[in-house]
Nucleic acid binder design. Structure first.
Length: 478
RNA sequence: CGAGGUGUGGCUCAGUUUGGCUAGAGCACCUGGUUUGGGACCAGGGGGUCGCAGGUUCGAAUCCUGUCACCUCGACCA
């Protein structure tokens, strides 16, 4: 971790985390505000990260039989209305289209906040027999939710995501798919983004509008707050019944289908920033970085320096690394800062002194560790260093998270931890939503999830003292 | 939706309380030169009519009225 603050333009992370976050987003040129409140412009550096997330996640989806589709951006009001909990959940934040071609529309159309209803219509029209099942669809798109307060990547009125929607013949199969997708998100976060996750189930009051069960991966940011980083819902047959999605079984009788949906959004980029970033800016995990290596020539006007840099670039590219050479006429110090703000995992320095010795210098972004390597095996060494960096970033994030999870055995202890120690709290829960509500009221902490990995840390509910049913992870959330 | 704040070159802001010379600074930008292993320096240059509309006044960035936008913090949400 960088111990010295080299860049003036970025607020110190520990001084003001919120400002630090905004500074990093701006200095790394990930995103900027548009002229419409809450709607963001993804700049090349930011969008490239999303493209890599898409590429990798999409490949994982497809290994499990997912097919991509695309459904309309607008939903007729009547269609939206059919599932009651769902409408009530989303109604306050939808945008409506009321005119088309200069005329008032007969029925207003909502800009999709999510597409369950459209998928239900699609499924209803295409699912007739058990032979049609399962249907395992996904779409990459943007959705609109009219947010009152917005923050880049974490909460914006329009955001990019993928939403998977599936229907199955049995409840068991739907549940299995729900968990399967949650695991894909979890593995992706840990292996590609180097972000450790806690898998679990949402409580009744925190689950998705209209779902039977909602599963989540919860991650911890550097300020100790939680971020829901991926979510997977089992709808049971609730939507199917509301929208008439049914099929004829082998028994020649009509059955409702069992349905799931699951999504991950550009919020993942926010997570990358807030888990790995430091006072010099963004730190991208090598596996997801659009540019993995930046070559910075020193005294590039000197004979042969740029040629040597070009040769290194070609070799790294040939080895399958994403590499750029910064041969702009800025000074090296400027380039160092620039490339660090952008979070590029590895820097290669090559100058006259190195050339004399037939070597170059590799510098890791996460800890600034320098390795001098000979020009012959620069590609091999670069790959090694990147892989080590990826592992170290995960271990560091995990160690941070684990050291910021605290156990509370009674309410006084709970309140003390929430008030004084940034992080998550493990506390037993009786199962009563009233306790959740009281905790939220008293402390602003919410139940993040009922983790799959249960432990019995005390006999009584951390809030009311009645017999406890489950261990719950609590915390302040984004 | 509740509370607070801000609108002045591309960006960050000063100037507004107490109206008055040609509206300023830093950064960024352009030209030339010296530099180049952690955000260089010197010299020269271009660019704003002060969110918008109305009003008061000999005179408005500054005062008044209205309006729009954005930001921060709280309640709801990936």
């Amino acid at each position: 971790m960088a111990d010295k603050k080299l860049v003036e333009a970025i607020t110190s992370r520990d001084e003001d985390f919120t400002q630090w976050y905004t500074d990093v987003v701006k200095k790394a040129e990930l995103m900027e505000y548009s002229s419409i409140k809450g709607f963001m412009i993804y700049k090349p550096n930011g969008y490239a990260i999303w493209e890599n997330i898409q590429k990798k996640l999409d490949a994982e989806f497809k290994k499990t039989g997912v097919q991509n589709v695309y459904l309309p951006v607008l939903i007729p009001e009547s269609l939206l209305q059919k599932e009651k909990d769902h409408v009530e959940g989303f109604a306050p934040e939808v945008a409506w289209v009321t005119q088309g071609g200069g005329n008032e529309l007969q029925e207003r159309l909502c800009v999709r906040p999510t597409s369950e209803t459209l998928f239900c219509e699609l499924f209803r029209n295409n699912c007739h027999t058990y032979r049609d099942l399962p249907m395992v669809y996904n779409q990459w798109c943007s959705v609109v939710r009219w947010e009152k307060t917005t923050r880049p990547f974490l909460r914006s009125s329009e955001f990019l995501w993928q939403e998977g929607h599936t229907i199955h013949a049995t409840a068991e199969e739907a549940e299995a798919r729900t968990i399967q997708m949650l695991n894909i998100y979890a593995d992706f976060c840990e292996k590609e983004l180097a972000i450790p996750v806690i898998k679990g189930q949402k409580t009744e009051s925190e689950k998705f509008a209209g779902a039977e069960a909602t599963y989540t991966i919860e991650t911890m940011m550097h300020d100790g707050k939680s971020l829901q980083s991926g979510t997977s819902h089992n709808f049971g047959d609730g939507f199917a019944k509301a929208y008439g999605v049914q099929y004829t079984g082998k028994d020649n009788k009509l059955h409702p289908v069992y349905q799931t949906s699951w999504g991950a959004s550009t919020r993942l980029i926010g997570a990358i920033i807030m888990v790995h970033g430091d006072d010099s800016g963004l730190v991208l995990p090598p596996h997801i970085a659009p540019v993995q290596v930046m070559i910075i020539p020193i005294q590039q006007q000197k004979e042969g320096v740029l040629d040597a840099a070009e040769r290194i670039k070609d070799e790294l590219a040939e080895a399958g690394l994403s590499v750029q050479l910064d041969d702009s006429d800025k000074r090296p110090g400027w380039k160092f800062s620039e490339e660090e703000m952008r979070g590029i995992p590895l820097r290669v320095e090559i100058g006259p002194k190195d050339m004399e010795k037939g070597q170059c210098v590799l510098v890791r972004r996460d800890n600034r560790e320098k390795t001098v390597v000979s020009l012959e095996d620069v590609a091999e060494k670069a790959k090694e260093v990147l892989e080590t960096e990826q592992q170290d970033m995960f271990e560091r994030a995990k160690a941070f998270r684990d050291s910021h999870i605290y156990d509370a055995h009674n309410y006084d202890e709970f309140k003390d931890i929430v008030a004084n120690k940034p992080g998550m709290v493990r506390g037993m829960w009786c199962g009563d939503p009233a306790c959740e509500a009281k905790i939220k009221e008293d402390t602003t902490a919410t139940s993040r999830c009922i983790p799959f990995e249960q432990e019995h840390i005390s006999d009584t509910c951390v809030c009311c003292g009645k017999p406890a049913k489950k261990l719950v992870i609590w915390g302040k959330a984004y």
